[in-house]
Write a protein that binds this DNA or RNA. Sequence first.
RNA 1: GGGCCGUUAGCUCAGUUGGCAGAGCACUGGACUUUUAAUCCAGGUGUCGAAGGUCCGAAUCCUUCACGGCUCACCA
Length: 535
Amino acid sequence: MDDIKKEADGLEVQEETEAEEAKLNIENIENSKAEYLLELETPIGESLRMKLEKIKTQKKKRNDLYKAKFVTNTDIKTLHDNFCHLMAGEKGEGDAVYNIAGRIMVFRRHGKATFAVLKDFSGQIQLYLNIKNIGDEKYYEFLDLDIGDIVGIKGSVFKTHTGELSINVQDYELLSKSIRILPEKWHGLKDKEIRYRQRYLDFIVNPEVKEAFIIRIKMIEAFRKFLTSKGFLEVETPMLQSIPGGATAKPFITHHNALNMELYLRIAPELYLKRLIIGGFEKVFEINRNFRNEGISYKHNPEFTMLEFYQAFADYNDLMVLTEELLKYVAKEASGTLKFNYRGSDIDFEGSWDKMTMIDSIKKFTGLDVNFDKDIDDLRDMANNNNLKINESFGKGKIINEFFDNFVQSKLIKPTFIKDYPVEISPLARKSPKNPNLTERFELFIGGEEIANAFSELIDPKDQFERFKFQVKSKDEEERMTGKIDVDFLKALEYGMPPTGGEGIGIDRLAMIITNCASIRDVILFPLMRHEKDI
RNA sequence: GGGCCGUUAGCUCAGUUGGCAGAGCACUGGACUUUUAAUCCAGGUGUCGAAGGUCCGAAUCCUUCACGGCUCACCA
């Protein structure tokens, strides 16, 4: 009880009023005589009302509008593949009967013959019904069906005079009745809000949307195949963590009732994957969700998919080689090509990818020679002269990074590794043996977006302890909030961790590039949306 | 969080200077036995995102709010 009370206290006022509204809706539902939710949506339009009345009459005639199953023996794409060679007017293989099932998308009624379009996951095909072939009763019953209904079809294959492959329907069965009206066949569904909230409608009406998701699915398959073939083991580490580590983002907070403890949705799997390296796993990877309680944008969703992998006895140079091979493989496997167009820019994965240090990249794109040999006041002046907003507390590293962020990153269209990041902005990376201001860290940029982030990992427990302490003492409130020291991880480090290269790859952002989608929401099946008002 | 744009029929969209709420598809009835955005005839679409204000009169002007999109900031 106390827990519930405590949680309720934490709720914001806004959420309470939303809860009240929801309650009212439930009362509406409980007290209504509506048979379908649709009828509670006010006002119900004329078209829908007429369709509903028709369905209620049909229900009296047919005892079951929702069947248990239908046995198919092929799918629509296979029929197209097998019978594309038919000549116009020609029949396929005598009287062979095929069973297919799908959703009716279009009717073209012509008196005693009717055409319709049936859609399954693999594609669309035209149906042809002739009253002579199928009989009066079945024929007129078919005319009572609606666009959106799901049917099972038995029929033979032929091509019409105009050369369209069609099914001559000999029998059919209504498998599932569609109560609502689908969006229009010609213009489709354009309203992005409805497309994201009711993704199923997007898939039904805009078949091309599916393609991006299929590429994404194949990408993830390819990642697994490649990494497994290189001897990496796929593991699963906690998403509910008592200390959210491995990054500095704000976490989502939740609560375990039986243990009465605060838990966080993970912001990164990093510290657990490193524990596995310490435990003797030498090559591990994880592909799964991270959760960050931050702003939402075309490239940020609160939950997103990350690949992280760790390889013992390797450093960041090894990872650059591996990454290039990996991403070329994944891109080719998933999409069949290495050439993409992202947000208007042509991107070619072919050829050897550029590698340059952050400092060299700034020189290349701006002509400015910013480096650690310069006096900090000179760097500040240069920043001010270039209209960069520099905080008093910024050291040389952060100032140099400002130049990179503002003048370089967006220009890195073709795949480019930027390496040797300042220590100041790289708390988890091993210091460069050549220059104590730099770390053995790289990021990969494609299409101006950060796609991967990798380091030679910090394995010195003393150094790590100091950096944790620094984080906890930090004046930055956000860093402090998430900066509880993961003592169990430190303890693990003190047993000795092998030198390790570790990397994270943002799957959603890579999918955006490979599918030429301008928004992360177009590569996430159900992106987070605000509450919808009313029902 | 800031700026700009948007929200009108199930869907896609018009809506003039503030003066009866419109079209196509879909839907309902009818005709039509190879159409394919089928065609033809007839019919009805509606909390104009919500609330408030100005006005004789508001989809239209003003204010606030909600939701969405783009963008900047934050974030990595």
